[in-house]
Design a protein around this nucleic acid. Structure first.
Length: 275
DNA sequence: CCGCAAACCGTAACGCATGC
DNA sequence: GCATGCGTTACGGTTTGCGG
């Protein structure tokens, strides 16, 4: 809790207006277990983890930094950091300043976190930027600036896609869950809780990718299984109903009729009559 | 006992308002 | 234009009761 995530389009808008200029780029390697306490930042910066992991505390809010994430921080933030785990902590640190200081209000003073996943493009750009930064002629400086803009694009874009990816994953996982546990009682509330989402939000998210609300999807799946069972087994209607997750036949019959146009018993009878 | 329907209750889905 | 919060509505789910 406390970690702020930002919307990619909003960020793009802000950065476009603000014309950031790179002030410094460096790749930093720190041995495991090392810590650093209480310094205050003076510039805007992106922290892009490459290897290992570290705990940062910005103004008392903890952030866990590992590859796949990008952190943005502003000036006047108190930083405590510690490298955790037993591998070397390696990251790029890019400091930049704003041309247009009138826009400083748009830059959140609280650090925020972006999820970009494993991104080779980003790593390659950082490498080139770092290399070009060591050469101090105007052409190389131009290269650094243009790469910085490319980098921003790539980071924001990845962050944007990652969000969608996460949503899609949740829906797929939920569908798999339904396929596996349709015979058990499932409620929307419990499903949503699995993904730590508000039930309303989850229901809509599910609908966006699955084309049906979760509970309707569950029912359809149960009805599909029920019709299969009616034709392929010699279970009684009651048994079929129990096998797809309904404790009472009444309700099952009602639903089955709604979904298949006829009652379970009729459905079975009609099928065998036409053989 | 079994399958079904009607009556009833609680929850999920819908639709609208609001904010971003 | 899209996501979110919230009140209302519709429907899922339980109980009861009836005919075969």
């Amino acid at each position: 809790m406390g970690v702020i995530t930002m919307e990619a389009n909003k960020l793009a808008e802000i950065f476009i207006k603000a014309s950031p200029t790179v002030v410094d780029i460096r790749k930093i390697r720190i041995e495991p277990g090392q810590a650093d306490y209480g310094y205050i930042t003076s510039l805007y910066a992106f922290i892009i983890p490459v290897k290992g992991e570290a705990k940062f505390i910005f103004n008392d809010i903890p952030y866990h930094l590992n590859p796949g994430k990008v952190i943005h921080a502003g000036p006047n933030i108190k930083v405590n950091k510690r490298v955790v785990g037993d591998s070397i902590w390696e990251y790029y640190l890019i400091h930049y300043s704003l041309k247009n200081t009138a826009l400083e209000d748009d830059f959140v003073e609280i650090p925020y976190e972006l999820t970009i996943g494993r991104n080779i493009k980003v790593l390659e750009m950082l490498k080139s930027m770092n290399k070009a930064w060591r050469i101090s002629d105007p052409i190389s400086s131009l290269k650094v600036q243009s790469l910085f803009y490319n980098l921003l694009y790539e980071i924001f874009k990845s962050h944007h896609d990652q969000a969608k990816e996460e949503d899609r994953w949740i829906v797929e996982e939920a569908m798999n869950y339904i396929h596996a546990y349709y015979m058990e009682p499932i409620t929307l509330k419990d499903l949503a809780k699995r993904y730590d989402l508000d039930k309303n939000r989850f229901s809509r998210l599910f609908n966006r990718y699955a084309g049906a609300r979760p509970m309707n999807y569950l029912i359809s799946y149960r009805m599909k299984r029920a019709s299969e069972l009616l034709l392929t087994s010699n279970f009684s209607v009651r048994e079929v109903s129990e096998n797809v997750g309904y404790t009472n036949v009444s309700y099952f019959t009602k639903l089955f009729k709604k979904y298949n146009g006829q009652l379970p018993s009729t459905y079975r009878r009609k099928f065998y009559e036409t053989l």
